[in-house]
Design a protein around this nucleic acid. Structure first.
Lengths: 136, 136
DNA sequence: GTAATCCCTATTAAGTCGATAGGAATAATA
DNA sequence: TATTATTCCTATCGACTTAATAGGGATTAC
């Protein structure tokens, strides 16, 4: 299951992208319109800023804005920041690889074999979707 | 992330399938060879039996055996029993659909749009893999 | 200088997961 | 019949994670 963090993060990015202009958008506005806890959203946007997706302006009339064009923001990158590994088991993760303690031989592991396929097909979807695509 | 329940369940099914014959295989043997907590595996095999994947024989020389041919056991079915919904959000689940409380309109929801694609591509992998395929 | 906003850290309540415990029921076999 | 090996069932526990909350600091517009 997708975490609420990821879900809210995607919704917030979409919200900002749909505004079109480069004016900073306030947390409160997004929270209200997307029905998200404001404090929770605050921490999510902070994460997105620190990972280079959003810029921020402090103080009155401050807010968050996109740093790149929506068409340049790939879902692979967003998902990895918000949700973590895309693979369902760490032994098939490209960016977060870890050997399983129980499994002595990945080549003969049926779970490994299946999950590689899932990873690749999911990755394919994320590679082919930018923020612009899902905001349409 | 895949739960250990699912991972162990798949490994156990594979283990039984690879034996080839229809002799009951004991929990202890599987647990030992696959490095799984025996008691935990016990509950998983119970689930698989109750959902019609495995038959069991009680008492001495008892154990679990496959009810269907490995080539007739689809990963879609196994995954739904062990892991639950295949979709990452319930609002795109085919078998466990539930409306999101926050989202007023699925048609305009970017998360919905993206997750439908993920669901379909994952589903496609599971549809095209039987227990025989992953046991090879 | 005041109000609005982002920034940061800490804490908490609830839920889930993996594992464990203990014994009941059943079947093979000596 | 007694013994042993196995599945069956329910209950419980500790560790971890998640979503949310709290409180105040820093910064900026006006």
């Amino acid at each position: 299951m997708l975490s609420k963090k990821t879900k809210y993060g995607l919704k917030a990015l979409t919200y900002i992208a749909r505004k079109g202009n480069n004016e900073p958008v306030q947390i409160g506005e997004i929270a209200k319109n997307e029905h998200i806890s404001q404090k929770f959203l605050e921490s999510i946007l902070l994460t997105l800023r620190k990972s280079g997706f959003l810029g921020s302006k402090k103080g009155k009339h401050g807010g968050y804005y996109l740093i790149k064009k929506p068409s340049d923001i790939l879902m692979t990158d967003v998902m990895r920041v918000l949700e973590g590994p895309i693979a369902l088991v760490s032994c098939v993760s490209l960016n977060f690889y870890e050997k399983c303690d129980d499994c002595p031989d990945e080549a003969s592991c049926s779970v490994n074999k299946l999950m590689i396929q899932v990873r690749d097909s999911t990755l394919n979807v994320f590679k082919n979707n930018t923020l612009e695509d899902i905001s349409r």
